[in-house]
């Protein structure tokens, strides 16, 4: 008899839980498998999405182009697919809006061990006259050129860039000595160090602090029609950010389970070398700078008024809401200061 009562109670709890999930607004979220995109997994696993009142399904994509095509076809409601790709889509007419971010920094310059001393100086001038391998229009390409320009180096004249189709090909070219150094992103430089004995000469952030990488982008129409759901989504990511900042061990395990990447590599990139920051801030100024760097590099001649595709207010409302509940929390206060500086 007791067994039947327990079974009935469990069934009731399950049904109630299912009913709650069914009533929550749903968001289909796309991502690419990079360690710094881990806030989604933390928010999902710790129950922050449901806690904030949004039911999230996560979908992994093998490329930014596929992900954005799904977003354009309205098979997704929101997603994170680099910075270049959404900028290109928007400049070609897609009605997308940036509402947040997922990754800041993360690009590294790798070289062969015997070239490390020569290339690891504190000044970007060490790259003058050098041949650099890169994936065209990748964040590393755009930001490294931005950093060179900021440093007063005429990279079109003083640096030779060799384009490759994939970052794996860049690593191969560095290994063979076909280029002096290569621009890579996580986890490729860690894998290049581990598997091929190559060395990181610099993280680009050393020359260009807090540069924007992968942004959260959504349909403009959907964002405008239902900002409350997107606010709840961002509130969950803000809480996930706090978890990531304060619970390294558990975060590494969550990332590892979700991405099936070597746990040591994730720990090393995320907490030891801190090569990228998983931060949900929209970084409006960074997006606009990134666009300018693409144009300065000569990839796109036409300008486009991008600012109207950046919505920082939903993130700010989400942050304010989280702070209201925990006004003295140091992580949230730091996020507020960061927001004011970068948006």
């Amino acid at each position: 008899m007791m067994k039947k009562i327990i079974t009935a109670l469990l069934l009731c709890v399950t049904l109630a839980s299912a009913a709650t999930a069914a009533t929550l607004p749903k968001l289909r979220v796309g991502y690419v498998p990079e360690p710094a995109h881990g806030l989604y997994f933390v928010a999902k696993e710790k129950g922050y999405f449901k806690d904030e009142g949004v039911d999230v399904d996560l979908f992994q994509f093998g490329s930014a182009a596929e992900g954005l095509a799904a977003l354009k076809a309205e098979k997704l409601d929101v997603g994170t697919f680099g910075t270049t790709a959404p900028l290109l889509f928007i400049s070609k007419g897609s009605e997308f809006t940036f509402i947040g971010g997922m990754m800041i920094g993360g690009q590294a310059i790798i070289t062969r061990p015997e070239r490390l001393a020569e290339l690891s100086g504190k000044d970007l001038k060490v790259y003058k006259g050098k041949k650099i391998g890169l994936v065209k229009l990748s964040t590393g390409d755009v930001i490294f050129k931005g950093a060179l320009k900021k440093a007063g180096i005429d990279y079109k004249k003083d640096v030779t860039f060799v384009e490759f189709g994939t970052v794996a090909a860049v690593v191969e070219a560095v290994k063979k000595g076909a280029v002096d150094a290569g621009l890579t992103y996580p986890p490729h430089f860690s894998l290049a160090e581990k598997n091929h004995g190559l060395k990181v000469a610099h993280y680009i952030e050393e020359f260009y602090p807090d540069y924007t990488c992968c942004r959260i982008v959504a349909h403009t129409g959907k964002v405008n029609a239902d900002p409350a759901t997107y606010r709840k989504f961002l509130s969950a990511l803000i809480r996930a950010y706090k978890f990531y900042k304060t619970n390294p061990d558990e975060t590494v395990k969550i990332y590892t389970r979700a991405l099936k990447i070597d746990e040591d590599i994730i720990r090393n990139e995320t907490y030891v070398k801190r090569v990228a920051e998983s931060n949900p801030d929209p970084l409006r100024k960074g997006i606009l700078d990134f666009w300018q760097h693409i144009r300065d590099a000569g990839y796109i001649s036409q300008d486009y008024p991008l600012d109207k595709h950046i919505n920082t207010s939903i993130y700010k409302e989400a942050l304010d809401g989280v702070i209201r509940k925990e006004p003295k929390d140091k992580v949230y206060q730091q996020m507020l200061a960061f927001y004011k500086k970068n948006n």
Binding site: V32, Q60, S63, A70, K75, L137
Partner: peptide, 28 residues
């Protein structure tokens, strides 16, 4: 031709292997 084409860059580990697939197992 490649130097002037504006193509969306590969972003992901093993992107080349996945390039010709249109969707993943979990893709909606």
């Amino acid at each position: 031709l490649s130097s002037v084409a504006v193509c969306i860059p590969d972003c992901c580990p093993d992107a080349k292997k996945r390039k010709n697939k249109t969707s993943k197992g979990a893709t909606p």
